[in-house]
């Protein structure tokens, strides 16, 4: 049975992938993110829309498909997320 992930953890996984594990410099495709973040298409679509609208991800149209790259705000959010994940870990909690 897989480990339960909170919405925050899934967002962290998506942002980490777009920061550290890109296919190429154009960004990651939805299919690639679905595979890397292990999430359904319907759920990732909603999350990607939210992340783009919040300015954490940048969306680009490349070779006929949408590609996603992390923005500066996204990097700052991810840094805060990683720090506070450690903080919550100390209390045995997930953020």
């Amino acid at each position: 049975m897989g480990e339960y992930r909170t919405q925050m953890k899934i967002i962290g996984d998506i942002l980490s992938t777009t920061r550290d594990d890109l296919q190429d410099e154009n960004g990651a495709t939805v299919t690639y993110l679905i595979r890397k973040a292990n999430i359904s298409h319907s759920r990732i679509s909603t999350l990607l829309k939210t992340l783009v609208s919040q300015g954490l991800l940048e969306q680009a149209d490349s070779q006929g498909s949408n590609r996603y790259k992390i923005s500066q705000s996204g990097r700052e959010f991810l840094q805060a997320y990683n720090s506070f994940t450690k903080f919550a870990d100390n209390f045995g909690l997930n953020i």
Partner: peptide
């Protein structure tokens, strides 16, 4: 942490 991440925890 809450202001930066919005985490309910």
């Amino acid at each position: 942490g809450f202001r930066n991440t919005g985490s309910p925890t």
